[in-house]
Amino acid sequence: MSSLALHAEKGRPVRTSLIRQYIPLLPPGLILLLFFAIPMGMMMGLSFQPKGAEAASLANYGRFFTDDFTLIGLGRTVLMSGLVAICVTVMAYPVAYFLARSRSPWRAVVFALAIAPELAGVVLRTYGWLIILEDHGFINNALLWLGVISEPLPLAKNMFGVVVGLTHVILPFGVLSLLTSLQGVDPNLEKSAQILGASRLSVIRHIVLPLTVPGIVSSMLLAFTMSASAYATPAILGGAGFKVLATMVYEQVLFYVDWSFAAVMANVLLVMMLIVAFIGSRLEMRLHKKLHF
């Protein structure tokens, strides 16, 4: 049994056995095992037991990947998440830049406004968007009343509505993520660029943006994964025809009661997100190196 020898202050060696070293890991390890590893394992196993089948089989996976309906659902999930990732990052960047650089007293207010909506929860805000975007909601009614349009614009119950809703919900996370990255850029770099003749826009284009690309990648990754697993917003703002993996899983569990197929969908979602996360983090690492930090 190997042991680690530490010397206490008085010079006496203190031996801590390897086992005792790992004891503090036990409680969290146990929790992870019980509430994460085992259920994940069960879900994996479930996906290989189609309804009515005796032995383990890949039948449900086959079903998933040969049915264009489920594949469209997968594609829609990826598209939706990608769009949200872009929208969140593009909108969060100026806000994060302001928070990182400005010394105006409005900073605290902007920060609160950016983060506070999280307190209201997802469902409340999503229904709020429904009221604003639906065919006889706030925007359409206003435009109809003004005579700008004669038919309501389809702003809800489609990809547009879902992307708007999800962007709103995920934006605070994007802001926080980009804020960290922006704060890592030495303000003297911007000042140097300025004094060398760069306008504010040039400074952002030549200095700030390139140096925050890793932050941009990680913000997009964050927004992507949060979107891909979102349920409430696509369900409420997407309408009946808008099926993404999360809503499809819900249906399989509760309506069709085909838990095996639901597990297949959940696993596909998980693997898809892992692939994206993997690609994203490799990209981020490579960019970091390229920027010679």
Binding site: D67, F69, A240, G241, K243, E251, F255, Y256, D258, F261
Partner: peptide, 18 residues
């Protein structure tokens, strides 16, 4: 039949609405 009918519904009925 539910799973199959569900697919048929999405394929045949839902698109006919808009």
């Amino acid at each position: 039949n539910l799973a199959d009918w569900g697919m048929r519904w999405e394929r045949e009925v839902v698109p006919a609405a808009r």
